[in-house]
């Protein structure tokens, strides 16, 4: 993927995090609004699945950007990118499992 596409997705996920993260915060910290949000657990699970995906992409890409800036070398850049991608996918798989258990889908 081109670096410009990666960074464009970085900004898209930033906006997604702001929206889904706000829903996550309200659900857990505001007694009134939280009850309304958690009333439909399937929708809230969808929100958390999107939140987790966007957050992991944004966080791991942020770490990747800092790392490849610290080690400006073509070969290292390639390996860092692959390592971050694999760790990110594995974390998403585990995180989705945890979410399903926590929200009563498994």
């Amino acid at each position: 993927m081109r670096e410009s596409t990666v960074m464009f997705l970085h900004y898209i996920t930033a906006i997604l995090i702001a929206i889904t993260g706000l829903i996550h915060l309200l659900a857990n910290n505001d007694p009134g609004i939280g009850a309304v949000i958690k009333a439909n657990s399937a929708l809230y699970f969808g929100n958390m699945a999107i939140f987790l995906a966007a957050l992991l992409y944004h966080a791991f890409n942020g770490v990747r950007v800092i790392l490849i800036e610290m080690v400006p070398d073509k070969c290292w850049t390639k390996w860092i990118s692959w390592a971050v991608l694999i760790v990110g996918i594995v974390t998403y798989a585990v995180g989705l499992q945890v979410l399903m258990v926590a929200l009563g889908f498994a």
């Binding site: 957050l55 966080a59 942020g62 800092i66 945890v98 926590a102």
Partner: peptide, 19 residues
């Protein structure tokens, strides 16, 4: 950058010991 790194550290702890 500093806040980004700190948030990543918090998020990892938030995942590892859920919530």
């Amino acid at each position: 950058r500093i806040t980004g790194i700190l948030i990543v550290l918090f998020v990892l702890a938030h995942f590892y010991s859920t919530g």
